[in-house]
Computed example of a mutant assay.
Amino acid sequence: MTPETVMEIGVQTMEVTALLAAPLLLSALVVGLLIGMLQAATQINEMTLTFVPKLMVVALVLLFAGPALLETLLGFTIRLLEGIPELIG
């Protein structure tokens, strides 16, 4: 296993991680931004007000995007496991 192969696997791992995390993080970011603007407009400074909507939106995104995220993760894992003989020899 060459250093280039290790770096390539590392890069692919980071790409898959970003693909898996992006929908959840972006949805939480958008909801947090909208609630932050609402809080600024109404001058309500309650920290728990942002937590529950973010949690619900992340759960909904995970519910709807979960199968696609799982397929991405499984595809990467299968490619990695199938490539073990090539990496060893």
Rank of each mutant, 00 (worst) to 15 (best):
T2L: 15
T2Q: 15
P3W: 14
E4D: 14
E4V: 09
M7G: 15
I9G: 00
I9T: 04
G10L: 03
G10N: 10
Q12F: 10
Q12R: 11
T13A: 14
T13S: 14
M14T: 14
E15L: 14
V16Y: 03
V16W: 05
V16A: 02
V16F: 00
T17M: 09
T17F: 10
T17P: 03
T17I: 06
A18E: 10
A18C: 07
A18H: 13
L19D: 06
L19V: 14
L19R: 08
L24Q: 05
L25C: 12
L26G: 02
S27H: 02
L29H: 10
V30I: 04
V30H: 02
V31G: 01
G32F: 04
G32A: 12
G32S: 06
L33M: 07
L34Y: 01
L38E: 11
L38C: 04
L38T: 01
Q39W: 00
A41S: 08
T42Y: 10
Q43V: 04
Q43R: 12
Q43K: 08
Q43C: 03
I44T: 03
I44R: 06
I44L: 08
E46S: 11
M47Q: 14
L49V: 08
T50D: 13
T50R: 04
F51S: 07
P53E: 01
K54P: 00
K54C: 02
K54T: 01
L55W: 10
L55P: 00
M56F: 15
M56R: 14
V57I: 07
V57L: 02
A59I: 01
V61I: 00
L62A: 09
L62G: 07
L62C: 07
L63G: 09
A65G: 14
A65R: 03
A65K: 10
P67K: 06
P67M: 04
L69W: 01
L70E: 15
E71F: 11
T72W: 00
L73V: 06
L73T: 02
F76T: 02
I78H: 15
I78P: 09
L80G: 03
L80P: 03
L80W: 03
L81W: 06
L81I: 13
E82H: 15
G83R: 01
G83A: 05
I84C: 08
P85R: 04
P85W: 02
L87A: 11
L87I: 12
I88E: 12
G89W: 09
